[in-house]
């Protein structure tokens, strides 16, 4: 019994434990408009290589990312956010990803209204 639990922990847990010191928390500005955007980004990013935790603050238009620097970097994550259809800092949203978003997420956001 104990052995099985241990094996389970070893399988999935050990890599996360040993690489604690390479973990950073970073914030990327993005173009979210609603709760659906939050779930698209969180679900779309949480299983990306190296990502530990994703929190999207919709109204603050921010993505707080905790990730491992030896497995991924800010540029890679920004690219992924763009592919999901959202702007990531200076990287513009990928047109294909944006096109695939549900209607509520396509509404123009404040910084595009002129």
């Amino acid at each position: 019994m104990k052995k099985i639990i241990l094996a389970f922990l070893v399988l999935f847990g050990i890599q996360e434990i040993k690489a604690q010191n390479k973990v950073v928390t970073d914030t990327i500005a993005t173009s979210t408009v609603c709760g659906t955007c939050k779930s698209i980004l969180e679900e779309g990013l949480k299983f990306e290589k190296g990502v530990i935790r994703v929190t999207v603050l919709v109204e603050e238009k921010k993505i707080i990312l905790k990730y491992r620097t030896d497995k991924t970097d800010r540029a890679t994550l920004k690219k992924k956010i763009s592919l999901l259809g959202y702007q990531a800092d200076d990287v513009l949203a990928d047109p294909k990803g944006f096109e695939a978003l549900p209607a509520c997420c396509k509404k123009p956001h404040e910084d595009e209204k002129h």
Binding site: T27, I28, A29, T30, E60, K62, D89, D90, D111, H114
Partner: peptide, 18 residues
């Protein structure tokens, strides 16, 4: 504060980084 919008003039703006 990241992602803040800095507007100047009619159409120009900048975004703050992380």
């Amino acid at each position: 504060i990241s992602g803040a919008v800095v507007r100047f003039g009619e159409k120009e703006y900048a975004l703050s980084d992380a």
